[in-house]
């Protein structure tokens, strides 16, 4: 199976302590794999470069460490998501309010979705 992300993962591992085993990254929860894949896909699409990403993530982690968090690395993917959001905002591709509003819509959509149905944004009752 091809591993389109291996180079990115290795590049990241060199700069930041990405949770991994001998084969590459590991994820504690599904959303972490989703966030990882999103960054890989955006980079493959040329939205940002591996270097830009490494800098964005590194800055986020340094900031968190300076603020007293991120000691054991357990919040690595929280920082990952913040780095992604900030990078997209810096590139003019997203806004903080826009992401906030969309996240709230997903939370409402999930609550409104009965068992057995996929969670879709259309299910947001306030849409």
């Amino acid at each position: 199976m091809s591993r389109p992300d291996v180079e990115l993962a290795l590049a990241l591992a060199a700069n930041t302590p990405i949770p991994r085993d001998a084969d590459g990254p590991v994820f504690a929860e599904p959303w972490q794999a989703q966030a990882f894949a999103l960054v890989v896909a955006l980079q493959n699409k040329g939205v940002f470069t591996a270097q830009e990403w490494a800098e964005a993530l590194g800055a986020e982690i340094r900031e968190a460490v300076a603020a007293g968090g991120c000691k054991d690395g357990s919040d690595y993917y929280e920082r990952w998501c913040e780095a992604l959001e900030h990078l997209l905002i810096a590139k003019g591709l997203a806004s903080h309010d826009g992401v906030d509003a969309r996240a709230a819509a997903w939370e409402r959509a999930a609550e409104a979705t009965p068992h057995g149905k996929p969670i879709l944004l259309e299910n947001d009752p306030e849409r």
């Binding site: 959303w31 989703q34 966030a35 999103l38 896909a41 955006l42 699409k45 939205v47 993917y77 929280e78 998501c81 992604l84 959001e85 997209l88 591709l93 997203a94 826009g98 992401v99 969309r102 996240a103 709230a104 819509a105 997903w106 939370e107 999930a110 609550e111 979705t113 009965p114 068992h115 969670i119 944004l121």
Partner: peptide, 22 residues
């Protein structure tokens, strides 16, 4: 069904990027 705040945030970023075609 329920999303935690971080799960919702990842969905938000993903859906916004999908809509923009990225």
């Amino acid at each position: 069904n329920h999303f935690t705040p971080i799960e919702a945030r990842v969905r938000a970023l993903e859906s916004l990027m999908v809509e923009k075609g990225y």
